[in-house]
Design a protein around this nucleic acid. Sequence first.
DNA 1: ATGCTACCCTGGCAGC
DNA 2: TGCTGCCAGGGTAGCA
Length: 275
Amino acid sequence: MPELPEVETVVRGLRRALLGATIDGVDIRHPGILRSAPAANFLAVEGSRVRNVDRAGRFILVDLARGAATLHLMLHLGMTGQLLVVEEAAPWAKHTHAVFQLRDGRQLRFIDPRRFGRLDIVTEGSLPERLRRLGIPRGQEPLTVAPDDFVALFRKRKGPLKNLLLNQALLRGLGNIYADESLFRAGLDPRAHHVSAPRLRRLRTAVRHVLRSAIRAGGSSISDYVASDGTRGWFQLRHQVYGRTGLPCRRCRTPVRRIVLAGRSAHFCPSCQSR
DNA sequence: ATGCTACCCTGGCAGC
DNA sequence: TGCTGCCAGGGTAGCA
């Protein structure tokens, strides 16, 4: 499940592989993955060069230049999406929905069995305008948000803390795994309401630590996730609570509990995490 | 504005 | 063995 660390790993791989490469065309094999722009709009990538690869939350942004014109490609991996840079002769994976042909004979392939992933493209407009048209949430980046801003984001909000962490309009990039892992590290119950400022500061530190550790590990590979060169991450081996329902807490041996919040499983240690 | 639920979609797995 | 039914969840539409 690609969350911020997985997307960051993919972005770093794409940057290494694609910067300066020329795109000769794109084949949208399954238009259902398009978010808003019709398939015809993607014809514009022909002859463009990759100028930058970046990330906003879980959204991957590829800046393309063609002459004086710029194009902005958005890719979202959804639940099971993969972006692979391969030689064009590489074996064909099932559920390959889009293929970008590179002039040097390689291909960027978008593969997504569950088809929750999305592609979009815009051609112009100011940065905020582009981000809006690409559907990028307005939330803060968890790795750069200042302590006071982090506290301000959550202080006057209602609802369980876990739900707030999943709200991409507040903080973008956290998903179910890293929300649970961050709450465990901060010692906070996912059901906690109206959390105090000192506890929120602790949560910010925990989020940063968990995300950075996961990025160093190349992300968590649970089912489909792989980096753009096909390698798997190993942070799943370090999960403290996610996916460990009924197993002993690694800190205190109390069985890990699973409840449902925001329509998702929330995993936590009832002894180590307090409200 | 905000917070909630239903929906999309397929592979993997438990249970019979 | 083979079938059925359920579960996983990111983002968004639609609702109160």
